[in-house]
Design a binder for these strands. Structure first.
Lengths: 345, 345
DNA sequence: CTGAAAGCGCTTACAG
DNA sequence: CTGAAAGCGCTTACAG
């Protein structure tokens, strides 16, 4: 662990060694037009030979770009979502020559920290920001970001869609499709475990379930819809209640994988084998679901792809105004993931 | 989503408005000594009034610091570890005025990407790097980082401990303590599900278990130690095998929470109620374990605190050489987490 | 306690 | 196709 204090190689050194001006070196570095193939290759050789690495700060200062894109989370911890977003975002930032900076707005005790947002925006110089849910619908955040005059893209926003570019997937359509696939296996008594009422994805998934059932002419009794909060314990309680019904369902569709895992535990408690006597499906394709027993049938939510698209939308806005694409939103595809927690009736 | 093209307020504007030199403004900004209280407050007022935000690139260029700290992961996705590391690291970077940049070295298909490492180090200007396991023991990574002459700190390294500063926790001691706590509840037939043989934490945890049993005078039969790979399915198989023994254990200690959850599933399969007829404990304090049923007794691994300490060690090295602390390692404390998956015999 | 000058290493805007 | 000059907005090193 040392710091090298010997002088760094700069663009001037390269220019001198290659017998050209620094402007020409700059052209080669940035793949600009206007350098003959001969000069270009000579400069590249010298760069390679001297191990030259451009100074990012100098580049930023003169170009007025930080080459930093921030992604802000409510909470970084304990969440598969976070890693997926970063994986996707990183693919896009690398392609574009940007670096990915992470931030979160919650205090350690889980309180929303309005000052943190202001501080983040005050002390930093992002070229753009990716806002994840539920932050992307928080008016305090949006106002702070807009006051700082920062470009931003939202992931799966709930409302006010014209306000800024966004990426999304069709939760309702996916839930409908998942429900229909249970129907096609012969299931008729299909129950649903809903997520929190104020959560966009939860609402949409519930609507998709209801729509599918309505399309098949089924009036869903209230008892078939249990309410949950996206956490495992609520799925357990919901499953427990549903399996205690006089005529229990043959299939339970939980609004996310965590709750579906809770349903599996409830089935174990009731001595109901899955999938032989009960089919269970989830939503999200969380790693927990894949390692559950039996492995959970679910819907793949393309989180990484959504984040990648979000960064792409952002970067495109930084380009030359004449060619700047004004793509306002991008929709990503879901995919049903069939594992071992379902079987035909 | 707009970009403001009006001229930014700079240090020159503040200096003019406050009637001082830019050097004095700089002193106030950086809380340097040598500015009277009167001047200081006058400058601060002007800064506030004009909404001045220092340009980070300019600061970096002249101070030869990027104020960027990188944290490199093998894989960003699907892992509770990643979020915890970032949460802790972010606490420390914020305190020190740094930003946290994330990177991963695996390609999307899970292949180690040696070129990615070189590219990361080539295109970026970190002041320092946090290396997470198992990267922190990968000679290719270490060589690349050292060749780039970058300061770095390792989290829970396996070997070659003198090579660079590091943070760690006592996995062996924790596993010993967890085993002894089962013993004190009256358990005598305590089985262990081991993690992968090439994984430092897995080895240490197994040794802690064996040490505790040896201290109590028990020669552990081979059949009591099942081998796993830290994934849930291996825990399920291990539990299945252990519960099929002629004299099954009354307690199973799994080397991590994922495998412990698999053991719970095996217990359900065997119709063995947990904790009434079988106690199950894990290790890590992963969120999965908390939402398992029954909620899992485990050992809290202070991942966030380790990451925070790692960044602290790094930042201290950047300070004035005269006061630079040469703290080489820091040990963090574990903590037993008692939930509902254990009961006395 | 305060400031004038130089310089960090690039890109931009312009000229030829 | 190529380059000389100016400038980005700070900090450093030095002087008083």
């Amino acid at each position: 662990m040392t710091r090298n204090d010997q002088k760094r190689v700069t663009i001037v050194d390269i220019a001198r060694e290659a017998g050209v001006s620094i402007k020409t070196v700059s052209r080669v570095l940035n793949r600009e037009e206007g350098a003959s193939a001969e000069v270009r290759s000579r400069v590249e050789t010298v760069i390679e030979k001297m191990g030259y690495r451009p100074n990012a700060s100098a580049r930023s200062l003169s170009s007025r770009r930080s080459y930093l894109i921030g992604v802000i989370f409510q909470r970084l911890g304990g969440y598969h979502y976070v890693g997926e977003v970063q994986t996707g975002a990183l693919r896009a930032t690398r392609r574009g020559g940007y670096q990915l900076v992470v931030e979160q707005v919650e205090t350690p005790d889980g309180v929303f920290d309005a000052e943190a947002v202001t501080a983040i925006l005050r002390n930093t110089t992002f070229d753009g920001l990716v806002l994840t849910p539920p932050l992307c619908d928080d008016p305090r955040i949006l106002e702070a970001v807009e006051a700082a005059d920062l470009a931003y893209v939202r992931m799966a926003p709930n409302a006010d869609l014209d306000r800024a570019p966004y990426v999304w997937m069709d939760d309702e359509g996916a839930a409908r499709e998942q429900t229909l696939s249970l129907w096609e296996m012969g299931h008729r008594r299909i129950a649903f475990v809903a997520g929190p009422e104020d959560h966009r994805a939860a609402i949409q998934r519930r609507q998709g379930y209801l729509r599918a059932m309505a399309e098949r002419g089924v009036a869903v009794p209230d008892a078939w819809i249990a309410s949950g909060d996206f956490f495992g314990m609520s799925g357990f309680k919901a499953g427990d209640a549903l399996l205690s019904l006089p005529e229990p369902p043959t299939a339970i569709f939980a609004g996310n994988d965590e709750m579906a895992i809770g349903v599996l535990a409830a089935a174990a408690k009731h001595g109901v084998p899955v999938p032989d006597r009960l089919s269970v499906v989830g939503f999200d394709n969380a790693p927990n679901g894949a390692s559950a027993w039996p492995p959970l049938t679910t819907v793949h939510q393309p989180i990484a792809e959504m984040a990648e698209a979000a960064v792409d939308l952002l970067i495109k806005r930084f380009g030359d105004a004449r060619f700047r694409e004004q793509e306002h939103s991008r929709k990503l595809d879901y995919r049903l993931v069939v594992r071992d927690s379902v079987s035909p009736v």
